[in-house]
Write a protein that binds this DNA or RNA. Sequence first.
DNA 1: GAGTTTGAAACT
DNA 2: CAGTTTCAAACTC
Length: 765
Amino acid sequence: MDVVSPELNSLLPDEIMDTEAITMEEELPVEHLAAPPQSEPEPPQVPMETEVPEIVSLCPATTSMQMSSASTDAQCSTSSGTQLLLNLPKISSVTVPANHQLIINKVASAPAADGKSPGTAVLKPEGQKLLVAGLSKTGQPIMLALPHTWNKPATTQGTGDAKAQPTQIKMLTTVGKPVIAVSSASQLMGSSSTLQAQQLKTLQITKKPTVSTAGPMITKLIITKALNNKGLSSPASVAPVVTGRVVTQSTPVTPPRTITIGETVSTVPQNTSGNSKVAISPLKSPSKLTVVSVASQSPNSPQKSVTLPLNVALGQQILTVQQSAATSPAKAGTSQPNAQTVKPVQTVGGVGTSQFKTIIPLGTPPNVQQIQVPGSRFHYVRLVTATTGSTTAQSGGSTNTNPSIQQAKPVMMNAAVRMSVPIVPAQNIKQVVPKPLTSAAQVVTTSQTPQRLIMPATHLPQIQPNLTSLPPGTVLAPAHGSGNMGYAVLPAPYVTQIPQPAFVTLTSSSTFSTATPIQTQARLSLNGLSTSEATSRPRKPCNCTRSQCLKLYCDCFANGEFCNNCNCVNCFNNLDHESERLKAIKACLDRNPVAFKPKIGKGKQGESDRRHSKGCNCKKSGCLKNYCECYEAKIMCSSICKCMGCKNFEESPERKTLMHLADAAEVRVQQQTAAKTKLSSQISDLLTRTTPAVTSGGGKLPYTFVTKEVAEATCDCLLEQAEQAELTTQPQAVAERLILEEFGRCLRRIISFAGKAKTDCPINC
DNA sequence: GAGTTTGAAACT
DNA sequence: CAGTTTCAAACTC
C-alpha cells in the first residue's frame, strides 16, 4: 500500500490539514454523494505560485533552490490532468514594481474548456475578497486586498453560484508578532456592512530560519479573504484594480508596502522553489478558503521581486506552504509563467502522535498520490512512501476514468509540510489565539475534547469503494496515535462540528537543510460552515443509550455529526473514539453503501419532486405521524414506499386536515405574536408621550393608558383569537371563553405597563 | 417523566 | 431476502 511509512512520518514535518468542507455548488444535488457523471467538472485546482520575495511563495520546496524555473514549474504544476478549472478569474501574475506595490493580475478570460491550465492561478470569482498581509523577512508588512467588487460572480454554470454566500475572512499571521491590518479589512472591502455576515479566519505562520539561512527568516504572512456575495448584483463586473493597504508594523526597518491587486493580465516571474500545497475538501461553502503560502527568501537574494501566491479557488481551501532554500540565489527573479492548479484533494500525513491533521501538497505532491473515487466529488490524496526512487506516475488523467487511485508521482522528501489545522465551528467568527509552538508535532487545540476521525491506512483499500457514500465534505485526515500513516475519514459535518477554534500549524522542513529543518508554523482559524449552514441546523440532541452513537439509530451519527450536547450514554461518536467510530462507519457502509446519503432525494423540479430514496415501511401510523420518514420530511409517500394504509398522499383528506391544522396553528402563533408585539409597542409608545391628563394620587390610573391605539391593538388580539377559535372549529362557548381570556391578558398587560410607568417615571407622571 | 408505540436499523 | 430483534424517537398519559 502506498501509504507513508512510519519512518517517513517521523521525518516529515508537522502537517495539518484543513478539512473544512466547502460546497462546490450552491445547490448540491441531494444525491451529491452519488457518483457524479463522468463529465462533471472536478473541483478547480488552485495554482499556488505567486512569489513574494520576502514573504511567500507557493511552490513547494524543491530539492534544490537552484532548480530551474522550468523544473519548478513542472513540479508546481498540478500533477494531474484532472485539474478542473471552472470559469474563474485567474491571477496570472503578481508583480512587484519598484515602488513596492504588489500587483496581482487576474487572467481576463476563463480557462479553456478542458479546464486544464496547469500554470494558472485561479481565483474564485464568487464575491471573494482577499486580503493578504504579511511581513517580509525584514518585517515589512504586506497586505493585499481584493475589493468586494473583484469577485463578483462570473458566469455561473447553472449551479447558482451567484447566490448570496457567506463570507469568511481568513487571516494568516505570524506567530508571536502582531499583525495589524486585519481590522481594516472591512474598510478595504469597501463595504463594512457586508462584513457583518462575514466570518473570519486567521492563519498564522511563523517561519523559523534554517541553519543555512543567514538573514532573518521570520516571515509573517497574513492572508485574509473575505467572502461575501451578498449584495452583489453585478456578477460580471470586476473592479479592475484594488488597492491594498499597508499594514503598519512594529518593525521599523522598512516602510510598509502597498500592494495593488489588479485584474489585468500580465506575466510575472514566479518563484521556482518548491512548495507544498494543501487543498481542502471542496464542500459546503464555496467561498471559503484561503491558501497560505509562505516562502522565505534568502536575505541575500539580489532581487526584490516578489511573487505572492494567491491560492483561492472556488469551493476550495488550499493551504500552501512554500519553503525555498534560504540560500538559493535562484529564487529571486525566477518566474513561473504557468500557475499551477491544485486539486482539492486532501490528504493527511499521519504522525506518530498526530493530534493534528496533515496536509499534503497536492498540486505538486512529491509524496502524495491523488486518489480519485469514482463518482465522488471529493478528491483524496494518498501519501506514498518516499523513496529515493520514484514511483511510476500515472498520468493524472482526469476525471473519473480511473476509479480509484492515481499513482504517486515521484516522491521528493524535501519540503515536506505538516500542518495542524484548527477547526472552528462554523457558527461564529472565531478568533485565533496564537499559541506557542514547541515542537514539530502540533496538536489541534480545542477548548473541548479534540475530535477527529481516523481511518487506519490499512483499512483504506476496503473503505475506498465506499468513499462516495460518505457525507459531504468527507476528507481524509491523519491517523491518530500511531506512527503509521493513516487516513482519517471525516465527513464534513464532523469536521465542521468541531466545537472549538482550532489552530493550524504548518511546519515545513527541507531535507536539504543541514541541521535544523526550517519550520514554518502556521495556525489557521477556520470557520467550517457557511453562514447559512451555521444558522440552519441546531440538531436535536440524541438520547442513545445502547448504540454508543455508532449506529444509524443515532441521528447524530447518521447525519455525519459528532454528538454535541447530547444526552447519550457511553457515546463513542466523538474524536476520543476515532477508531471505533471509523469501524462503525465502515460497518455501516458495508451494510449499505449509501448509508450516509440523504434519504430525501431532490428532484430537478424542486421540492415537489422530493421523495424518500427508499420509501417508508409504515404499517400503523398511516404515514401521518413522524414515525414515518416521509411524513417527517414533509413529503408524500411514493410508489416506492411499502407502507400499509398510507394516508400520506396528495388527495388524502386526513393529510389535508393535518396540514390545515398545522398551518392554522402556525398562523395563530404568528398572529398572536404580532398582536402582542403591537400591543406592547403601543403601550410603550404611549408611555413615552405626554403625561395623560388624568392622574390620581400623583400617578396615572391604568385606564388612562387605554388610548385609541391601545384599544385598537387589544381589539386586534381579540379578533385574532376569535379567528383562531373559528379556524379550529371551536364551539361558541369555547370561543367566547378564549376571547375573554385574551381580553383578560390584554388588560393585565395594560395594567402592568401602567404600574411600571408610575414606578419608572414618577417625574413625568 | 414514565411508559407505550412505532418503524428503521441491525441481526439471524 | 425474509423474519426477528434491537433501538431510539415519537407519542400518550
